[in-house]
């Protein structure tokens, strides 16, 4: 089954982290991505730019609304994602637990809604 691992972190805290900490975290992400790939679990994944770069679009009553900023203005924001192939929910949770994001924020595990023909 395919699962999304959605990584939520405190953007302000991340931006304020010292350089060596930032380096340590990005090295950990690099190793994690490699481990996913070598295990054959990796399907896709990327880091997102901070929510300052986000634009939210919504159509209401026939009018398009374009707003600066993320969908919800919360402290913890979506910062990146992985799409993985995992045997079952337990295996997906095990990968989420290894994600560096799990120790700095929260990793949400969501199964992909597979289209059945």
């Amino acid at each position: 089954m395919r699962y999304m691992l959605l990584i939520y972190v405190n953007e302000a805290a991340m931006a304020a982290a010292p350089t060596d900490k930032t380096y340590e975290i990005s090295a950990a992400y690099g190793a994690y991505t490699e481990a996913l790939k070598k295990s054959g679990a990796w399907l896709a994944g990327d880091r997102l730019k901070p929510t300052q770069a986000a634009t939210s679009v919504r159509m209401a009553n026939g009018k398009t609304n374009v707003l600066d900023g993320p969908y919800a203005d919360t402290k913890e924001q979506l910062a990146g994602f992985y799409m993985i192939e995992a045997e079952d929910a337990d295996a997906a949770i095990a990968w989420a637990a290894r994600c560096p994001g799990a120790s700095t924020g929260t990793v949400e595990v969501r199964p992909i809604w597979e289209q059945t023909m």
């Binding site: 950990a28 190793a31 481990a35 996913l36 637990a97």
Partner: peptide, 13 residues
């Protein structure tokens, strides 16, 4: 790299 990518605990990582 492989070990780091598979580790859950930040201190061990």
């Amino acid at each position: 790299d492989r070990a780091i990518g598979l580790e859950r605990d930040p201190a061990v990582r």
